Simulated assay, not measured.
Amino acid sequence: MDSPHGAAVKAEGFGLKGPRGWVFRDVGIDAAPGTLIAVEGPSGSGRTCLLLALTGRMKATEGHAEIGRHRLPKKMAAVRRIAALGPVPGVNDLDQALTVAEQLREGAMLQRRYEAPVRALLRPRGAHRAPAPARIEEALAVVGLDPAALPKGPRTSVRDLERLEAVRLSVAIALLGGPRLLALDDLDLKLSDAERTEAWDMLRSVAARGTTVVAVCSEAPDDATVVRTGPPAESAPAPERAATPPAVTPEVTWGASRPAEPEAGTEPGEKAAAPSLTQPDAKPETKPDDTEAADRTGTGTGTDADADAEDDTKGADDALAETGRA
Rank of each mutant, 00 (worst) to 15 (best):
168 R>A: 00
216 V>P: 00
227 V>N: 00
189 L>I: 08
228 R>W: 00
226 V>R: 14
221 P>W: 08
177 G>F: 03
167 V>K: 14
171 V>A: 13
160 D>N: 15
224 A>K: 01
212 T>Y: 01
221 P>I: 08
193 D>H: 12
211 T>Y: 01
193 D>L: 15
208 A>L: 07
185 D>Q: 07
180 R>M: 01
207 A>T: 05
223 D>W: 06
207 A>R: 02
228 R>F: 03
221 P>N: 09
167 V>H: 13
216 V>C: 08
163 R>D: 11
222 D>N: 08
225 T>M: 11
189 L>G: 09
166 A>R: 11
179 P>S: 08
170 S>G: 02
170 S>D: 02
187 L>P: 04
210 G>N: 08
214 V>L: 03
171 V>T: 05
221 P>K: 10
227 V>G: 03
201 D>R: 13
181 L>G: 00
191 L>K: 07
170 S>H: 01
204 R>I: 10
189 L>P: 02
197 T>L: 14
174 A>C: 02
224 A>C: 05
191 L>A: 09
214 V>K: 01
181 L>N: 02
199 A>N: 06
192 S>T: 15
181 L>K: 04
202 M>F: 05
160 D>R: 15
218 S>A: 13
210 G>H: 11
182 L>I: 09
199 A>C: 07
188 D>H: 11
195 E>K: 01
172 A>L: 10
180 R>K: 04
209 R>F: 05
213 V>D: 03
192 S>E: 09
192 S>K: 11
220 A>H: 04
223 D>K: 11
169 L>E: 04
201 D>F: 05
180 R>D: 04
219 E>G: 11
175 L>D: 04
168 R>G: 02
